[in-house]
Design a protein around this nucleic acid. Structure first.
Lengths: 342, 342
DNA sequence: CTGAAAGCGCTTACAG
DNA sequence: CTGAAAGCGCTTACAG
């Protein structure tokens, strides 16, 4: 798109030099109020819009952040995006979006696109756990691309963590089920290439709670983070482990899939069996029975991830962003869990 | 972010001029195979990433599209975004994202940001119906910014329409309820600043079906496109119009809110009252009872909107993109609708 | 098929 | 407080 009015035109009309126009454009304080006003008037009258490509080239900064998410249609991720976007807007940054569709190669592709796209930094809210990818990310962060990774582990001193305590969360959830009297508790995990560390930690928390309470009953069923897999996993549990009285799912979406399997089998939740989710997506409170779950502060994670990234980009003191932020998960009791039947 | 290796470095290493490097970078065909290979080798060895700001400045094109949506956390919109993004990726375009939060002023703000952000075009998948906004959009499209608006009306010969036949959809839905024997059918509309034309047309379709069938019973309750408003509207209908046997909601989200109100009042769906949604978001098939609804091809609309925009940007013949695309809505029968009770 | 030169619209020291 | 000049890293006619 062509824009006929540029910084030079403004300078001409205002009777000053380009340099001065640039100064008022960038809010430098070494401009007299009189000329500032003059220039601003001209800018408004001519409806001038700075050319961000030129600006980006000259200043070596684009004021845009690349955001990579696994799947934008998943409410879990879109809430992250919202938080990230809100913060970006506050700080006058733009957002470039890319979906990886849970596929490692596409994650890499997204990142490469952003490297060319001249984003100032990358905020990654998506899967991982792949060695090659982690290596690439470490490399990137150590070199020259500011990078924040939310909701995922990656050990790198250049990258502050913004994450959730998955072990403690799953521990809390399992303990809650134990307190309701359940002893035969199954866990359906979200075992997949793209988000394994979260799932692995949740399994750890589940086991930890059982061990601490001297329960040696343990059923762990694999599955991807989606409804279909959870549906199948639940069918399997019902068939092979009819003694199970509670199922803990690694995500709410999985719990929804599981709920359907249970209903189809004629079981009542929570009368016959309790189910517990993880995430607290909007859906959790909509379905019937409303789902008990562990709440992840997704919006905040997106917001804070973006905040740290921008702090870094703006050259703010390292203390303000270098600290790791690990959120604890909140147990939300709703109607899908109940005292175990005698 | 600084990149030490630029087009000049490549030229040096390959023993050619910058011009030639630029040619192979842009896949121009007037380069000998030998030098092309030489240059590509150097590019790979040096891990060169073109600077898109420089490219954008020189070529006056950024290869990025601005996407404005009302609310990314709403599955209705995220599905559009996915379609749009998939198409953009196919054509090597990037996406810049902005949320308007259903607010007219923010829509304008998003668009202004994109004007500066040097996007090549704007794809708008969001509310409207505001006069000032429409004027601004018309202006924009007539001047110099390629613009496609999806799922909304705006009469402008420069803007091909990508929309859904809301009148016919609501007509179809209402007729379906009539065929089930319902005579006292209420409609809860999504009356709001930001998407009124869709709602207005749906009301038209509802009325048309009633009139054609000589039904003069008609209850229209206002509300915004959300659960809370629909909940309240439904309570009102139950109180003031207990004779109603079916409620048609202007969106699935609204139907979900209505369902809750009905359940809370002790009514059974569909035994006591039928409900019908609009959109067919993922949730529609998840809730209990699964919601009958009119399916909007959201992914396709996003995809096709993006396709038309890119066709235009790439200077393809006008015939390939100028045509309006109006989708018909598909009736999805599920479990929330039933024959009326005697 | 290839190179030299101008230019895209800004920012940023430098000088005054 | 302000201006002249160089430069950011590309593309694009133009010439050969």
């Amino acid at each position: 798109m062509k824009n006929n009015v540029d910084i030079y035109t403004i300078a001409e009309y205002a009777g000053v030099s380009k340099s001065t126009v640039s100064r008022v454009l960038n809010n430098k304080d070494d401009v007299s109020e009189a000329t500032r006003k003059k220039v601003i008037d001209v800018i408004n009258n001519l409806n001038y819009k700075p050319n961000s490509s030129a600006k980006g080239l000259a200043s070596q900064r684009t004021k845009t952040i690349g955001l990579v998410v696994s799947e934008i249609t998943n409410s879990f991720f879109s809430m992250f995006v919202k938080g990230a976007e809100d913060k970006a807007m506050e700080e006058n940054y733009n957002i470039m979006l890319a979906n990886s569709n849970w596929i490692v190669e596409e994650e890499l592709k997204c990142i490469r696109i952003f490297e060319e796209g001249r984003v100032d930094g990358i905020l990654k809210i998506s899967g991982g756990g792949d060695e090659l990818l982690d290596q690439y990310l470490n490399n990137l962060a150590n070199k020259d691309m500011p990078l924040i990774i939310v909701d995922r582990k990656l050990d790198n001193d250049n990258i502050p963590k913004v994450n959730v305590n998955n072990i403690a969360g799953a521990y809390k959830g399992t303990k809650y089920l134990l307190e309701l009297g359940h002893r035969n508790i199954a866990f359906v995990k979200g075992d997949n290439i793209a988000a394994s560390d979260a799932s692995v930690d949740r399994v750890k928390g589940y086991k930890k709670a059982l061990i601490e309470n001297n329960i040696d009953y343990q059923v762990i069923e694999p599955g991807f983070f989606n409804r279909e897999d959870a549906y199948k996993a639940t069918e399997k549990i019902m068939k092979n482990h009819p003694e199970v009285t509670a199922i803990f799912y690694a995500s709410d979406m999985m719990a929804v899939g599981g709920l359907k399997a249970l209903k189809n089998a004629g079981l009542k939740v929570p009368e016959d069996i309790s189910i517990l989710g993880f995430d607290d997506i909007e859906l959790a409170s909509i379905i019937d029975p409303a789902l008990s779950t562990l709440r992840q502060p997704r919006y905040q994670m997106g917001y804070i991830g973006m905040e740290k990234l921008i702090d870094k980009l703006e050259g703010r003191p390292k203390e303000v962003y270098a600290e790791d932020i690990i959120f604890e998960l909140e147990l939300i009791e709703r109607d899908s869990t109940a005292q175990v039947k005698k």
